[in-house]
């Protein structure tokens, strides 16, 4: 909460504009990020889950190195409705319990393969669920946080801030990445 007020004050100071100095955001990317909604331990867990969903590959970084949990935290704190926050909060507790019961170790202690297999199972049950499953929300937060981050948008996608022109028939070959801006 404090951080948000600080942001607000700075916006006022620069005349109501919402462009904030870049230095302000670098703090979000560093380890001293102070979460608004999750705990610091949650952030470690979410970054690991993110890495399992979107791992490092030959041409682009994984979710963990982008610290995607920091923006997930901002988004849940500020953009989620209370009922969605509740689903996430209860979901994380259930997730950790299920890790112990079904895989018999904490998520962080699982091997890469175990993490992958466990999230595949979880994803399937989330997809089959008739109510809003916490993992469905978490996964969409991971994707959002990753693909809208600088490295996600510029490395996993093609980011073109100033195209300069429009072409309606631009060749596409299998493997070419999507544009980051729609």
């Amino acid at each position: 909460m404090k951080r948000r007020n600080a942001l607000k004050n700075i916006t006022v100071a620069v005349g109501g504009s919402l462009v904030l100095p870049a230095t302000l955001f670098s703090s979000c990317q560093s380890d001293d990020y102070q979460p608004l909604f999750f705990t610091k331990k949650d952030l470690v867990l979410l970054n690991e889950m993110g890495e399992t969903i979107l791992p490092e590959t030959s041409d682009s970084p994984g979710a963990k190195v982008l610290k995607i949990a920091n923006f997930m935290d901002v988004y849940v704190a500020d953009c989620y409705k209370a009922e969605q926050q509740k689903i996430i909060q209860e979901g994380l507790i259930k997730f950790q319990k299920d890790c112990q019961e079904k895989v018999e170790k904490s998520f962080l202690k699982m091997t890469t393969l175990e993490k992958h297999e466990w999230l595949v199972v979880l994803d399937k049950s989330a997809r089959d669920s008739e109510t809003t499953h916490y993992f469905r929300l978490l996964k969409s937060l991971v994707l959002l946080s990753y693909f809208t981050a600088k490295d996600g948008a510029t490395k996993a996608l093609r980011y073109l801030p100033i195209p300069g022109k429009f072409e309606g028939n631009y060749p596409f070959q299998q493997g070419d990445k999507a544009w980051a801006l729609g």
Binding site: R127, L143, F172, K177, A178
Partner: peptide, 23 residues
């Protein structure tokens, strides 16, 4: 774009590659 449903793998490198490409 990436914010779409895809067939096949839903977690991991193959999934990441697929949703990084236009649908």
């Amino acid at each position: 774009g990436w914010n779409r449903e895809v067939e096949g793998e839903q977690i991991g490198a193959v999934f990441k590659e697929k949703i990084s490409q236009p649908g």
